[in-house]
Design a protein around this nucleic acid. Structure first.
Lengths: 247, 247
DNA sequence: TGGACCGTCCGGTCCGGGCCGAACCGTCGC
DNA sequence: GCGACGGTTCGGCCCGGACCGGACGGTCCA
């Protein structure tokens, strides 16, 4: 009776969707939380349009992606935060084969991503971890037994223009740790992580770069340092003249 | 430059391990947290021993399982709580195709599992959800912004014989929600969930049934009701004479 | 009304891998 | 020692599915 209906059929089917290199790279690309067209994804993964179309159909039918048709374009995005979390977890567990980038362009793009990027809809990279740690230091968050928001944290957020109450109403967990790929330490995810990331963009403190990368604006650097109680120097982005630059 | 080294290769490889019905059923079986022999798993999945052997080798090499050889037996178990969580999440997202059990035996086994079972190393099923809710009601836990343990909760646990400090030291998260398959509501996972489940067994309040199932002992029912502030009737197990029993 | 473009559908090819049975090797027990 | 038993290895079968090119059907713009 061990082989009941609860055998691995459903789970295997779901995993199979992610067990293909091309589909996995689609999902990873979509972790930026935005909608991509089929063609963009095809080019990013290096496959023919027909192949990509097929994969997208399967991912949508499997419930991992949702699509939206506009004219001759087919936009797809992740079906929701839960899916994003699943992808993140899976990617986090995966053996990291980080073949170092060869070209200078790729290296500088890599550095930009390592500094700050979006992870689905929240802030990741060195900046994401810095924010996470600063929130703990300032007493906004507390991790005595799970991650929690302090009363002081609620008013701190209100001053910043991030009302907490509407977030509590969401079905999504308010706070969640998300292990950072590059830093190997947690950054802040969950509804609050998303709201903070969004607010920073709204305030103009951060701005979207190419792809998933995020950069700190000139105005944002001192402002962010002030509210986090940091030295602006701590928020220094990667300098262009770092390392043995072509001798 | 989108196709950097961080393409889906690693993630696809990991997902591929779980994308097979047989391997998935192995992992689901191992969710009980105990070590199984290769033969047991082969029989439970309905495949030849040679097939199972092959699958196990791959799962071990992939880091999802760890093995321990004893004489002519090969014991395997999940590599750790992180893996268990991944499996749970994947299983939770999977489309549930719960073909209702046909035989009477299977039906009663299903009822026992729905009432209480282990989920890797913590308590799940109706009982697991009841405990989770009672802990919130009694103020042991609090979920204003993430799940947290209250000061009162710490002493409540101490009285029960579950010291919290050692658990904090563990790298594993202390508290975690785990969506219950049968109840579709959260039960308590994480280091504390595991410790509580273990303590109940130690106290003789619960006992292991067949497979993953857990039953409440005669002594355990009033005792558990007392510490949780519940009516013992709320903890009633599934009665054998429930439903239209053969005409 | 063309033509460029995005996406889809339809064969067709090919490779990976899941499965088994049979032979083999080691452990355990008599 | 010998047989019983658990597990592994090997060879071979076969199916699923990932991929492509080419034809086709829409949408948008001139």
């Amino acid at each position: 009776m061990t082989t009941t209906s609860a055998d691995g059929r459903g789970m295997a089917a779901l995993a199979a969707l992610l067990a293909d290199r091309t589909r996995a790279s689609f999902c990873l690309a979509l972790l930026d939380g935005r909608a991509w067209t089929a063609g963009e994804l095809a080019r990013s993964a290096g496959v023919a349009a027909s192949t990509a179309s097929d994969h997208l159909t399967r991912l949508v039918q499997g419930g991992l992606l949702v699509e939206e048709r506009q004219g001759r374009h087919r936009y797809v995005r992740l079906a929701g935060p839960a899916v994003a979390q699943l992808i993140e977890d899976l990617a986090g567990h995966a053996p990291a084969p980080p073949a170092p980038p060869r070209t200078l362009r790729a290296a500088s793009a890599g550095a930009a991503l390592a500094y700050a990027r979006t992870c689905y809809d929240h802030l990741a990279g060195r900046l994401g971890v810095l924010v996470h740690d600063a929130l703990l230091d300032r007493g906004v968050l507390d991790r005595a037994g799970g991650l929690a928001l302090t009363p002081a944290g609620v008013s701190w957020l209100a001053e910043l223009g991030v009302p907490v109450e509407p977030l509590r109403a969401a079905r999504r967990p308010l706070l969640r740790d998300c292990l950072d790929w590059t830093e190997r330490r947690p950054h802040l995810a969950g509804a609050l992580g998303a709201a903070l990331c969004h607010r920073f963009l709204d305030l103009g403190w951060t701005a979207r770069g190419t792809g998933r990368s995020i950069r700190l604006t000139p105005a944002g650097r001192p402002a962010l340092a002030a509210v986090l109680g940091l030295d602006p120097a701590d928020l220094a982005p990667p300098s262009r003249a770092t390392g043995p630059a072509r001798a």
